[in-house]
Computed example of a mutant assay.
Amino acid sequence: MSDLSGRCRCGGLTWRAEGPILWSAFCHCDDCRRAASSDYVSWLGVRRAGVIWTGDRRLFRSSPRVVRSFCAVCGAPASFETDVFPDETHLYAPSLDDRSLYRPSAHIFWSERLPWVSVGDDLPKHPKGLQDAAANGRSLLR
């Protein structure tokens, strides 16, 4: 078990989480890209019960089953929580204090990637998300 920590851009919002990292992946879905204004998002999943937040964290219900959070001071995106994975919090990997802890294991929602995204890695590329990968016997666990 490891202790993970991270922060937003301004440092006004911090988090600590009991490890381990449950999974890690690059997400190419339209919702994540738009929420982060990015070509894709680097996620890591941790146990929700082990996450402690400090600072002014704001919540936004981005869809009926999803709550995203962000720093109220600088606006940096902080997390993704969904009823689909009720025991997990998904954190933005670049927010890690020790970024060397992040080792992505797959690309998810590859079918929704932007047309200009080209990657040179040999990671698995799942057309859909975590549920679909699991249903097809492909684990994203590290």
Rank of each mutant, 00 (worst) to 15 (best):
S100G: 11
A93S: 03
W116T: 14
D121A: 05
H107P: 04
R99N: 11
F85V: 13
H107Q: 08
D87L: 14
S100Q: 14
R99A: 13
F109V: 03
S111D: 13
Y92T: 08
L114T: 10
T89H: 08
F109Q: 02
L123I: 08
D122R: 13
L91H: 02
W110C: 02
A106M: 00
S95R: 01
G120W: 09
H90Q: 11
L96G: 03
L123D: 03
D121C: 03
V84C: 12
L96Q: 02
P86R: 12
V119H: 09
W110E: 02
V119W: 13
D97V: 14
D97G: 13
P104R: 01
S118I: 08
V117A: 09
R113E: 02
D97H: 12
E88M: 06
L96C: 07
F85L: 15
S118F: 15
P115W: 04
H107Y: 10
V119A: 08
W116S: 13
H90C: 12
H107V: 06
W116I: 14
S100P: 10
S105Y: 09
F109P: 00
P115Y: 06
Y92W: 07
D97Q: 15
R113D: 00
P104M: 05
W116P: 05
P94Y: 01
L96H: 03
L101R: 06
R103Q: 06
L91E: 00
F85T: 11
D121M: 05
P86E: 11
W110V: 03
V117R: 12
P94W: 01
R113M: 01
S105P: 04
D97S: 15
A106N: 00
R113I: 00
H90V: 12
P86D: 11
F85P: 06
P115E: 13
P115S: 12
Y102Q: 06
D98N: 06
A93F: 00
V84G: 13
V117W: 14
L101H: 06
P104E: 03
L96T: 03
V84N: 12
P94N: 04
S111R: 15
G120R: 07
